[in-house]
């Protein structure tokens, strides 16, 4: 393997490394455990949702409604607190996320609505429901102390949600690479007809992928509202863009069939590191977006130009 191919293959790690290096050189005090912990915590919300999105993109699906699901789950978890208590309400919030995912899956698998269209519609619907439930007002939670407890830093690095993020990424990596169901997911995203002809049920796989993505958006939403002790209908309004950017920067292909958990981790951390470093440098927010956008384009173009074409006959031997 040539150096170039190697560089492209591990391009996320390279970009992340470069970002950290440049940030360390230009921002004093950047390379510290505190910065790492901070970066992990602020990327945890994006990261947890990106896990679900990775699975969906590999299956050649997409869910634009995760931001709305995120808000809806958070509101559910807060509004039910006085009724059924904090932890049952949190569970209800996660279940609301799962239900939203199941609804998306239903539209996509049973009614065969294109995922982009289906989740664009549910993005609007879920968001409106969130506004309707709350009269467009933020809802306070019952226990302010809980939010402090959730923000406690353990082992000097991890908060509850960043630990959850990193742990889930590792689980996802294991699941995608080592389990039969994980490999079947790639098969469904790469060639659903072939998968079906081989006895895999693509419909069920896709449906479960939607439920999974909805559930994780729900988890992220519940954690967000518990941490802020607030349920708000405007939470996560622009989150979807960052989530997709992080997953794609991580090398997951939007056309399905290719992607990895560690890549998504790299993508999430790259975007977090970039924005953190630029904030330290007081780079205006709109410039930050330009940089993230350019890096996204750079990575995808690199992928397209260096990867050898799929149908070269070069390797064809003459068997027999």
């Amino acid at each position: 393997m040539t150096v170039l191919v190697r560089l492209v293959r591990y391009r996320v790690a390279v970009i992340l490394g470069l970002t950290l290096l440049i940030a360390s050189l230009t921002v004093s005090g950047f390379p510290s455990v505190t910065t790492l912990g901070l970066g992990l915590d602020r990327s945890a919300t994006i990261g947890i949702i990106a896990i679900g999105m990775t699975v969906l993109l590999i299956a050649r699906q997409i869910d634009l409604s995760v931001g709305s699901t995120f808000a809806l789950a958070g509101i559910t978890a807060i509004m039910l607190q006085p009724v059924i208590g904090i932890w049952p309400a949190a569970l209800a919030g996660v279940l609301a996320g799962a239900a939203a995912g199941a609804f998306n899956g239903l539209l996509s698998v049973v009614f065969r609505v294109n995922a982009l269209v289906a989740t664009l519609a549910t993005m609007l619907i879920f968001r409106s429901v969130a506004h309707w439930l709350t009269d467009s007002q933020p809802v306070p939670g019952t226990d302010i102390m809980l939010s402090l407890a959730l923000s406690t830093v353990h082992l000097e690095i991890f908060t509850l949600r960043s630990a959850l993020f990193v742990g889930s990424i590792l689980l996802l990596h294991f699941w995608l690479t080592r389990t039969v169901a994980g490999r079947n997911l790639f098969a469904v995203g790469s060639n659903a007809d072939a998968a079906e002809a081989s006895g895999i049920a693509p419909g069920r796989t896709v449906f479960l992928a939607f439920v999974f993505a909805g559930t994780l958006a729900g988890v992220a939403g519940v954690l967000q509202s518990l941490t802020t002790n607030t349920g708000s209908p405007v939470f996560g309004a622009e989150l979807i863009v960052t989530v997709i950017a992080a997953v794609v920067v991580g090398g997951t292909r939007i056309e399905g069939g290719r992607g990895s958990a560690l890549g998504t981790l790299g993508g999430v951390l790259t975007i977090a590191a970039l924005t953190t470093a630029m904030e330290f440098q007081s780079v205006p927010a709109y410039i930050q977006q330009v940089v993230v956008g350019l890096i996204l384009i750079l990575l995808v173009v690199l992928d397209r130009t260096v990867r050898p074409g799929p149908r070269t006959h070069a390797a064809a031997g003459v068997p027999g």
């Binding site: 098969a187 002809a197 069939g257």
Partner: peptide, 21 residues
């Protein structure tokens, strides 16, 4: 099949055992 029913993004071995790994 005449139209190849294989998954381009998996390995050869994974394709041979697709659906019954």
């Amino acid at each position: 099949h005449q139209e190849l029913n294989l998954v381009p993004d998996l390995t050869v071995a994974e394709n041979v055992y697709l659906g019954r790994m």
